[in-house]
Write a protein that binds this DNA or RNA. Structure first.
Lengths: 144, 144
DNA sequence: CCAATCCATACTGTTTTAGTCGGGATTAAA
DNA sequence: TTTAATCCCGACTAAAACAGTATGGATTGG
């Protein structure tokens, strides 16, 4: 019942970009350092995010990455779906392609997984990067 | 974001045993046939469930498996934990061993995963095998 | 021009998955 | 007492996924 590191690292990276939103392009090196991720590996992940148009890249010196939309407009669920595929605790209840399960109607276990899926979706889609930034602020206030 | 087939098959098997609760030991062959699972493979899964004392076995001819407790007393979450390990969308928010994460306090992404975990746990622990049996009855009434 | 950066492809060692295989132990029933 | 039905156990395996590495190329600000 695990996410791979793709979703894990990917969200960390996107969150970091969100905290720096408005400060121009952030080089991946910084992201990798701050979040303790192999830079080369992260490059592959951010390529996926770029192709999904969640981030924009600026090439050349002083280049880097920027969120493609404001943190307010990017939900965690979207990031996870891009990196991990449709949310589905088991294949037969994937958000996409329904059925294909021989026993779709009878299968009671299926309804359990649907409930799990929906509860995950509900959480992930209710949190935006901006929400996370606000949480961070709150957290730091308490420490000072 | 997937369960392995262990949890998937395991719940199917346990559910089937629940529907036959009170009818004496059910041979694994029947379970495997009904639920379309490789019998040998299922043997390995049920061994895990047996060691966790979720099912009892009766050896020899006319033997089989029986739920160790009544369907009312077995929650889906328990089955999943036995077969898949503690519920944790990412390692650092496992139900067991907290922390071990260098940045436990700062890490905002962490709180996202905690929320996901809690919502999964809430669903899985709120459903008993007996609940599933009731759902099945309801389902079948509609079909007759 | 050159250093910083992004971009792309290919390779790799490890682990997990989803089984298969082969045989042994137990016991109800014939 | 044999036999067939069952559970029990450990070893093996092919394929995929994971989590990176490695290498080199393209772009661009200073």
């Amino acid at each position: 019942m695990r996410l791979s590191t793709r979703g894990h690292y990917g969200l960390k990276a996107m969150f970091y970009l969100a905290t720096r939103y408005g400060a121009g392009p952030i080089p991946l090196k910084n992201v990798a350092e701050m979040q303790n991720i192999s830079e080369h590996y992260l490059e592959q992940l951010i390529a996926i995010l770029r192709k999904a148009q969640l981030v924009k890249s600026v090439r050349g010196a002083q280049g880097g990455y920027i969120l493609a939309r404001s943190p307010e407009e990017i939900r965690v669920g979207e990031i996870i779906r891009v990196l991990e595929g449709p949310i589905a605790p088991v294949e037969c209840v994937s958000e996409l392609k329904t059925a294909e399960c021989d026993q779709a109607d009878f299968c009671i276990t299926r309804t359990v997984w649907e409930r799990v899926r929906d509860s995950i979706v509900q959480v992930l889609d209710s949190i935006s990067l901006a929400d996370m930034c606000r949480d961070k602020e709150k957290n730091q206030q308490g420490k000072e």
